[in-house]
Amino acid sequence: MLDALRSRLFCQGFRTGKFPPAAPSLPDGFRGRPILSGGACPATCARCMETCPTGAIVMTEGKRPSLDTGKCLFCGKCAQICPEKAVSFSATEYRLGGFTREELIAVPEESYLPAIQKDEAIRKIAGRSLKIRQISAGGCAACELDFNVLNTLAWDMGRFGIQAVASPRHADAVLITGPVTHNMQLALQKCYDAMPHPCWVIACGSCAVSGGLYADAPTTARLPEGMHVDLFVPGCPPHPATLLEALLRFMGRTPEAQA
């Protein structure tokens, strides 16, 4: 007992991060929201599209690239390979979550401002307390681990009223990781059916958002009937700061007014 106290006081200390409201500390080489340049690409060049493992980049009219962060693995290959330097990744814009699929698509010269929850009912019910039942449905364990990390003292999501719960009966939201395999579809359906309404669906990571690498796999099923996603969080896996920030915005809490 005394040893534990001594450890806490003199060695381990207080380690909960200052984020939010302070900016999160992101690693060198962090790849955040893609930045696309507006100039039209040469008519014959499609190197980014040919390289992208998930088909996240497409050329819109006028040969301007657009990048779907919901499919993106953030490998950065497109940026590396583009001779025109038309694609790069922000080293600081970690706020990637969106309430619609459209918000996830980066286009040239956008003025990106992540949306805050407008739905009054969600703000009222979930604004100060969001209980989450996480379901891994073909996840590779990375999304799961980095959601778990929000529970550690370094991130301590509990201080915002966010908690992972065991029973779907106690949950406000289900957080799905993985592309939803056929073999997990029924379990996911049963879990969702057991949740009291209103309840919400969070798709965490590129697999859950779009199928990602596994979008075309014959083992990949769709979301069970009646489920539609209320919050999309891109990444492979999403950085803990990206996920936490998205959850807070979903609850209607701006990063500046967290406490």
């Binding site: 449905a137 073909g138 592309p179 395999t181 056929h182 073999n183 997990m184 796999a217 014959p218 083992t219």
Partner: peptide, 10 residues
């Protein structure tokens, strides 16, 4: 088997 994504086939 719940996590089976068919990686070998892919």
């Amino acid at each position: 088997g719940y996590q089976h994504r068919g990686i070998a086939a892919m």
